[in-house]
């Protein structure tokens, strides 16, 4: 397979409809063997305002290049490094981030090579369509931005790095509605930290079991009442976004600072933690024995 030459990317980010992705995403692109039809895609897209420096493509593209260089053969490890830095580079509100067309644009016009590099399936030799255009927890870039948004503790991105250690956090926890309550998300990360420090062998299964148990508990309990959070400082977020007009590129070695919109209430996390640990100790875990047998029988 010959690597695709880095295509010339447009100077400003834009919005690209799902329909356009469906139309132009080819198997060749998914396999990384074809360049996207730049002209047609640019025609189909709407460009964002040039006057807003935060929509410039160059800083994002540079960041992605750096990410691919740093993690050449260890793709899954890129998430922890890239998620906070992407979040701090692409500064925007949740409403803006919820528009899937922006993520489509990134995947199709700015960095299709990253999507293939990170998500190519060994068996099929292609990156799945959902990594180019799909749900917020699946799309190659949106999943990183949202994991940072979900788990950051105000300006502190460290919990995001923890969240990215196990794919199950993104695959299961991020889809829980109860995790939209910040102390709930923070308490889950504290448990993940413990699993990491204890080098637990079936950590993925435990995270999966825990997230199911928390979801079930959330159908009769309201965590917001048990563990009230501090209000978020929306002005601070707005200022942080406005600051992007004159910010340097995000630091490559140390973590950037996120929006200082208020830390998660520590007390609230302390209230939930023992409760979640108890849920985990009682949670049924995925049974791997059957799967193993199946593999052996094959």
């Amino acid at each position: 397979m010959s690597p695709v030459l880095a295509a010339v990317f447009p100077p400003v980010l834009g919005l690209l409809s799902d329909a356009a992705v469906t139309k132009y995403l080819s198997r060749g692109m998914q396999a990384g063997k074809e360049n996207p039809p730049q002209t047609a895609l640019r025609k189909a897209a709407t460009t964002l305002s040039e006057d807003e420096p935060r929509w410039r493509t160059e800083p994002v593209r540079a960041l992605i290049d750096e990410a691919m260089n740093r993690f050449e053969d260890q793709q899954p490890r890129v998430d922890a490094w890239l998620a906070p830095r992407l979040h701090a580079t692409l500064r925007m509100t949740r409403a803006e981030a919820a528009d899937g067309r922006l993520w489509n644009y990134l995947a199709m016009l700015v960095a299709p090579d990253y999507v293939v590099w990170r998500h190519k399936d060994k068996k099929s030799g292609m990156a799945p369509t959902t990594r180019f255009s799909g749900r917020h927890d699946l799309q190659a870039f949106s999943r990183l931005w949202w994991v940072a948004e979900f788990f950051r503790d105000g300006a502190d991105y460290r919990p995001v790095e923890t969240a990215c250690v196990y794919q199950d956090v993104m695959n299961s926890v991020m889809r829980l509605e109860v995790a939209d309550h910040r102390p709930t998300a923070a308490a889950i990360i504290r448990i993940v930290e413990r699993l990491i420090s204890q080098k637990v062998s079936n950590a993925s299964d435990q995270i999966n079991g825990l997230s199911k148990a928390i979801n079930a508990a959330g159908s009769t309990l309201i965590f917001d009442v048990l563990a009230p959070d501090q209000p978020v400082d929306h002005d601070a977020l707005r200022d942080w976004i406005a600051d992007s007009a004159h910010m340097p590129d995000v630091p490559r070695t140390r973590l950037p600072d996120g929006p200082d919109d208020g830390a998660v209430d520590k007390q609230a996390v302390d209230i939930l933690l023992p409760f979640f640990e108890k849920l985990l100790s009682e949670a049924p875990l995925r049974d791997r024995s059957k799967k193993k047998q199946d593999v052996e029988n094959e």
Partner: peptide, 13 residues
């Protein structure tokens, strides 16, 4: 007595 404002698209709560 708690009012809960949510939107799935933005994961807001």
């Amino acid at each position: 007595c708690l009012a809960v404002l949510t939107e799935n698209a933005t994961n807001a709560r």
